[in-house]
Amino acid sequence: MNGKHALRNGILWGLGFALMIAALYMVFIYVPTEKHTGIIQRIFYFHVPVAWVSFLAFFITFISSILYLWKRQTKWDAIACASVEVGVIFTTLVLITGPIWAKPVWGIWWTWDARLTTSLVLWLIYIAYLLVRSLATEPAKGARYSAVIGIVGFIDVPIVFLTVNMWRTQHPTTIIFEGGLTTPMLMTLLVCIAAFTVLYVLLVIQSSGLKTMEAEIRRLRIIKAE
């Protein structure tokens, strides 16, 4: 890794760390407790940014998959795959923190609401993405196949959301909490979203770097074999 990258990464890690500390401070000390649902509402400040990041991750995969099929540069494949990895981890967190929030508020772990269900379907699609990648007969094919899934899977998001919305018209989450968002709440949410977006960028840089290293190892092995 050269100096420019090291500097950029250093700045990003610093920024991410500072934002995360600020986010924690705002969530637990600065923002007042929401009146109706109580302290549990504080999950919202991390649940929503995590959901946002997982959606962003799959969108980035969609774009990089198109760019990979078009330009055939390994870096786009590395970014697409790293982004799915981070996206799947964050979707897992959405699917865990969602029920933890729902249980004390609505008395149920799971509701087939449009957002939760779409997250679940997305999670399954991108698990399949990772599986195809690891089970492809050769890495080049895996890269192409996963790019196709990255494109075709993402197109499904709006259709799934729309369908589930029609399917379950009763919709508990439209009212997140009664009072609506006050200014301190919105501020806290925005800082949390910024913190998690920076965390996402960091993780993708780190993880796509590993993909590049793996490609390098394959290249060196071929040289060695000759």
Partner: peptide, 21 residues
């Protein structure tokens, strides 16, 4: 009330993120 749920949610998030890093 519900402090346990809140703690559980934040613990899971941080455990997974740090585990991944």
């Amino acid at each position: 009330e519900n402090l346990g749920y809140l703690l559980a949610a934040y613990t899971v998030i941080w455990a997974v993120v740090f585990g991944y890093i």
